[in-house]
Simulated scan of single mutants.
Amino acid sequence: MLKKFFERLTNWELWPFALIYFPISFVWVWYMIRSRAFWFFTPSNPTIAFGGFEGEGKKEMYDQLPPHTVPRTIYIMHDLSFEEVKKKLELAGFTYPFIVKPDVGMKGILFRKIDSEDQLKKYHERIPVEYIVQDLVELPVEVSVFYFRHPSAQKGTVSGFINKELLHVIGNGADTLQQLIANHPRAKHRMLEMQHRHAHRFERVIEKDHIFYLSYAGNHNRGAHFTNLRNEIDENLHHVFDELSHYSKHFYYGRYDIKTTSIEDLKQGKNFVILEYNGCGAEPNHIYDCNMSLGEAYREILKHWKALFEISKHNNRHGFPYWNFQRGYRFLKQSQQHFKLLQKYD
Rank of each mutant, 00 (worst) to 15 (best):
L266G: 06
L139E: 07
D103A: 09
F226M: 02
W28H: 13
E232K: 15
G171C: 05
Y256I: 06
L65Y: 07
H286R: 01
L308M: 15
Y288Q: 01
I33S: 00
N316W: 09
I74R: 09
H168G: 01
L91V: 15
Y329C: 08
R126A: 14
P66K: 09
A199L: 14
R149M: 07
H78E: 14
R36S: 13
N45R: 10
Q64Y: 01
F17M: 03
G52C: 08
D209I: 02
R201P: 00
F339Y: 15
F212D: 09
I233D: 04
K59R: 13
L308Y: 02
R317P: 00
Y329V: 01
Y147A: 04
I233T: 07
P23Y: 02
G51A: 05
L177V: 08
V133A: 13
Y123R: 07
L65C: 10
L2A: 14
K86F: 01
M194A: 11
P46M: 09
V137E: 06
F38A: 11
F94Y: 12
H314S: 04
H68R: 12
D135Q: 13
V85E: 04
F320N: 14
Y298K: 11
F82E: 08
H238N: 15
F5D: 06
N315D: 08
D265K: 10
L180G: 07
K249I: 03
Q178W: 11
H286P: 01
G218Q: 05
F17T: 08
I263W: 04
I263G: 07
K313M: 08
Y216W: 12
R149G: 06
Q178Y: 13
K344S: 10
